[in-house]
């Protein structure tokens, strides 16, 4: 009986200690917010992973004087670069994301006119905010897209899943080849897109330019992505 009691005590102590260590580790690894990605050097991409969907999009750092930015060129392909945020953070506390982007070439949507659903899902530039859950079937993703024709402010369900919502934040060719600064409140956008507050924390962001369905070319630039901050008043 004594052995059993001390075993029980040891188990409870071990369990409590494990939780404490996990909490401390997650806290120390996590919250160096906001995350900022200026894409100034080649090494800027070291912490980003390539995630291939259909073919490989070329992502590389390009320079214009001291400035650096990320260039994405898709030739009939779809792949993203993906950054996992180690210490997930609450959207309500740190709701803002901002970035700069520039579209050079849209995938030819005329080719997709007759197509619907998955086959028409090509965008020159997208910024993903991913809310991964332990059960990935309920993971959510919010995508900010720059589309050639869809009106600004359009929110639609992805043809791939109801857990993915697309939000058109730039539209048309008027601003083609010019840098546009975007700043979004993820918390509010999530509420607009999904109709409720986010139930999981932000765990990753990703960038993509794709032209796999149109089998055309899309080209875009991204720069100065900043995530996890409060808007200064």
């Amino acid at each position: 009986m004594k052995v059993m009691r001390s075993f029980k005590k040891f188990s409870i102590l071990f369990f409590a200690l494990s939780i404490l260590i996990a909490c401390v580790v997650s806290l120390t690894l996590g919250f160096n917010l906001p995350k900022w990605f200026p894409f100034t050097t080649e090494r800027s991409l070291n912490e980003w992973q390539d995630k291939i969907f259909k073919g490989k999009v070329v992502y590389k750092i390009e320079h214009s004087g001291p400035q650096g930015y990320l260039h994405a060129l898709s030739i009939g392909s779809a792949s993203a670069i993906f950054y996992r945020i180690r210490g997930r953070f609450n959207t309500e506390d740190y709701p803002m994301i901002s970035w700069k982007w520039k579209v050079i070439r849209f995938p030819d949507k005329k080719k997709l006119k007759m197509r619907q659903g998955i086959e028409s899902d090509d965008y020159a530039a997208r910024v993903y905010v991913i809310f991964p859950s332990i059960n990935f079937l309920v993971s959510k993703a919010l995508e900010y897209v720059w589309d050639e024709s869809l009106p600004e402010g359009t929110i639609s369900e992805s043809p791939y899943s109801k857990n993915i919502r697309l939000m058109v934040v730039q539209t048309g060719r008027d601003k083609l080849d010019s840098w546009i600064f975007e700043e979004r409140n993820i918390f509010q956008d999530y509420r607009k897109a999904f109709g409720r507050n986010p139930s999981v924390k932000i765990g990753a962001i990703a960038l993509m330019s794709d032209a796999d369905n149109s089998q055309d070319i899309s080209e875009a630039y991204f720069d100065e992505i900043k995530i996890g901050y409060k808007k200064e008043r």
């Binding site: 969907f53 779809a78 899902d121 993903y128 990935f136 791939y160 899943s161 993915i164």
Partner: peptide, 23 residues
């Protein structure tokens, strides 16, 4: 298996297209 696959794929569309039907 599935969590590792989801981690590997990363892109939500890719997960929805490749893993979700299998699961």
């Amino acid at each position: 298996i599935f969590y590792m696959m989801a981690e590997q794929l990363g892109i939500p569309e890719s997960i929805a297209y490749n893993i979700v039907p299998v699961v």
